[in-house]
Structure formats: structure tokens, C-alpha cells
């Protein structure tokens, strides 16, 4: 009897667990196992292929893209969050920025790519405006469709994501801390360097890591923007999935996906640790 009462409530979780096993865990395990297989038997050939010059160059591009947009997004996003948090909580500005950020942070993909093509593409609105007004061709040799373009376009969703993630930390800065610091003789500058910045540092770093992972794993925007070449890891995965043999390896897609899991997992774990630290501080 006691056994039944202990067990039966847990049984109700079975559908949920089975579902996630099939549609989340099995694909993940497939990737991990597949990365170490070739023609159905164990092989490190695909992992080795990750260290080929072409694959490393792609990884480097991805890291540069993710790191650049994470830093730009984090700095500008923190700035925007600060502008918002210094406005009264009921102000229109605050409401608008928070809801718009909620939308734009999710706004990756095809739509975003097209928005920038409509703006800066060969016959884009801004391109043509500058061409006819000042005689400058900012389209150039098509930078929009390469790494520089990806950096610009990714920034568009990284900043709002930073606002959403960082705003709670900024709001967690209690006015008492400022008042206590001032009461104890601190100048505004000393308050920022000795109290506010050290307090926000983990939250800021954590949010930057989240932004990094977000950019690293983003696929749709790049896929819609870049149709030639595979400058970053997600696009190399596309190529590996659609063309049977790439870099001479059939299971390369698994290895690349495995690489992505590792990178994102490491970054997200560091993020979780930093967030735990801040949440203890900024309750």
C-alpha cells in the first residue's frame, strides 16, 4: 500500500517524460553517437574533420560573429536598459521599450534578413537614397551578405535580448545601496566603481554569455541572408545536411552539431552559475 502511494503519483509524469525522451533526448543522443560513428561503426574521423582547416576557419568565424554581437549587444543593451530604468516605472517609454524588446528579441529569421535587405540591399531603400542623394554606394561589394552583414543584423535582436535579460538586474539595484554609499561619504563616481559596477558585473557577464550562445546557435537569419558559401557553423551544418558528402565525411553534420552542443552547453553552464550568484545578491 505504501509502495503504491509512493509510486503512483510519479507515474502521471510518464507521458511527459516519454514524449521528451522521443523528441528531445533521442535526437540529442543520436547526434552525440553519430558524431563518433562512420558507416555504422565507431570512428573519430568526423571529430577529426572538425579540426580541418576549413572547419576551424568556420568555427573561428562563428566565434567572432557571436563574440562581436554579444559584446555590442551587451554594451548597447545595458545602456538602453539603464535609460529605461531611470525613467519612472509607469512611464510610456518604459512600457514601450519593454514590450518592443520582447517582440524584437524573438524577431530573428527570414523576416529580419529581409528587413535589412529591403534597407541595405542592392536596391534597398537606404542604399538608393544615398546613391541618389550623396552618390555613395554603401552596398559596395555585397558586405551585407557576408560576416559584416551578419554582425549588423544579429545586433538587431541581440540588443533587445540584452534589455530583457539585464533589466531585472538593474531593477534589483536597491536605492538604499546608493543612499548608504552616499551617506558613508562616496561620490557618484565612487558609488559606480565600488558598488554598482561590481554588483552588476556577474549579471552583465552572464547576459553576455547568453547573447553569445544565442548568436552561435542562430540559423534562420544567416540562412536567409547568406546563400553563397558557408562562413559560419550553422551554415556548414546546412551544407552537411543537404549535400551528402562534405569535407569527405558523411556524418559530418553530427560532428558539427555535437560541436555546437558542447560550445552552447559550456557557455550556458557558465551563464547559469553567474545568474545564481547575482540572484543571491539582487533579490
Amino acid at each position: 500500500m505504501s509502495r503504491r502511494t509512493a509510486l503512483s503519483p510519479s507515474l502521471a509524469l510518464l507521458p511527459f517524460l516519454v514524449y521528451l525522451t522521443i523528441f528531445l533526448l533521442v535526437p540529442t543522443v543520436t547526434v552525440v553517437v553519430g558524431a563518433f560513428q562512420e558507416d555504422g561503426s565507431f570512428s573519430t574521423a568526423n571529430i577529426e574533420a572538425l579540426f580541418s582547416e576549413a572547419a576551424l576557419r568556420t568555427l573561428w568565424n562563428s566565434v567572432v560573429l557571436s563574440a562581436t554581437t554579444a559584446v555590442i549587444g551587451a554594451v548597447l543593451g545595458a545602456l538602453l536598459a539603464y535609460l529605461v530604468v531611470t525613467a519612472p516605472p509607469t512611464s510610456l517609454l518604459r512600457r514601450v521599450v519593454v514590450s518592443v524588446s520582447g517582440v524584437l528579441a524573438q524577431f530573428g529569421g527570414v523576416t529580419l534578413a529581409f528587413a535589412f535587405i529591403a534597407m541595405l540591399g542592392f536596391s534597398g531603400v537606404v542604399t538608393e537614397l544615398l546613391r541618389s542623394a550623396v552618390g555613395v554606394d554603401i552596398f559596395g561589394s555585397g558586405w551585407l551578405f557576408g560576416l559584416p552583414g551578419l554582425i549588423l543584423v544579429y545586433t538587431y535582436f541581440q540588443i533587445p535580448l540584452m534589455v530583457i535579460v539585464f533589466l531585472p538586474a538593474l531593477e534589483g539595484l536597491r536605492p538604499q545601496w546608493r543612499e548608504a554609499a552616499v551617506n558613508l561619504g562616496a561620490t557618484t563616481w565612487q558609488y559606480w566603481t565600488r558598488v554598482a559596477v561590481p554588483l552588476l558585473r556577474p549579471a552583465f557577464l552572464g547576459a553576455s554569455l547568453l547573447l553569445f550562445a544565442n548568436a552561435f546557435a542562430a540559423y534562420a537569419t544567416a540562412a536567409a541572408l547568406v546563400s553563397q558559401g558557408n562562413p559560419i557553423v550553422p551554415l556548414l551544418i546546412r551544407a552537411a545536411l543537404t549535400s551528402e558528402v562534405l569535407l569527405g565525411r558523411q556524418n559530418l553534420a553530427f560532428a558539427l552539431a555535437f560541436q555546437m552542443i558542447v560550445v552552447v552547453a559550456v557557455v550556458m553552464t557558465a551563464y547559469a552559475l553567474l545568474v545564481r550568484r547575482t540572484s543571491r545578491w539582487l533579490r
Partner: peptide, 14 residues
Amino acid sequence: TIPALVIVVGMRNV
């Protein structure tokens, strides 16, 4: 942590 891109690579069998 497991991006959609990873799931799509691994979900062929399923």
C-alpha cells in the same frame, strides 16, 4: 541549450 539546429540534425530517425 540544445538548439533547434541540433535537434533537426538528430531527429531523422525519430
